[in-house]
Amino acid sequence: MVLQKNPLAFLLLFVIAILAAGCGAVSTPASSETSTPAAAAPSNDAYADTRTIKHDLGETVIHGTPQKIVVLELGFIDALLDVGIKPIGVADDNKSSLILEDALTQIKGYTSVGMRSQPSLEQIKLLSPDLIIADTSRHSSVYDQLSKIAPTIALNNLEAGYEETIQTALTIGEAVNNKAEMQHVVAKHKAKLQAVQAKVTKDKQSIVLVGNTDTEITVRNTGFFTAELLKTVGYRYALDDVPSFAGQKEKGNIKMTVEQFLEINPDILVLMSGEVDKKDAKGNRPILEDPLWNELSAVKNNQLFDVNRYTWSLRRSIKGANQIIEQLEADIVK
Rank of each mutant, 00 (worst) to 15 (best):
V270P: 04
V307E: 00
N302F: 08
A17P: 06
N284Y: 08
Q194K: 13
I16D: 02
E101Q: 12
M272P: 03
S140Y: 13
E33G: 11
Y237E: 01
A330I: 09
L19M: 13
D331T: 04
S206E: 08
A17T: 11
L8I: 15
G84W: 00
I332E: 00
I287E: 05
T215Q: 15
D135P: 07
Y110D: 00
I287K: 02
V61N: 09
R285Q: 13
D102A: 14
A238E: 03
W312A: 02
D290P: 04
R236F: 05
A238N: 07
G84I: 00
D203G: 10
N156A: 12
Q67D: 13
T136S: 15
E73G: 01
E163I: 14
P42S: 11
L328R: 03
V242N: 13
K125D: 05
T213V: 13
E59T: 15
S31G: 15
T213R: 12
V26R: 10
V185W: 01
E122I: 04
L19T: 10
A298S: 12
T226R: 10
P151Y: 07
V219A: 11
V307G: 00
V196G: 07
V186N: 05
K188H: 11
V196S: 05
L13D: 09
L81S: 04
K278W: 12
A134C: 11
S96V: 08
L100Y: 06
I99L: 01
N177Q: 13
I53P: 04
H139E: 09
L57S: 06
S128R: 15
D241W: 03
L127P: 02
S97L: 05
N44T: 14
I69Y: 01
D306W: 07
V299K: 01
L3F: 15
D331F: 09
N265M: 08
T65H: 04
V15A: 08
I324D: 04
I172E: 01
P119M: 02
E259Y: 10
D290E: 14
N301Y: 09
S313Y: 10
L98W: 04
I318P: 02
L269W: 01
L288V: 05
A48L: 12
D290A: 09
Q67S: 13
L262V: 08
A40Y: 13
I85C: 02
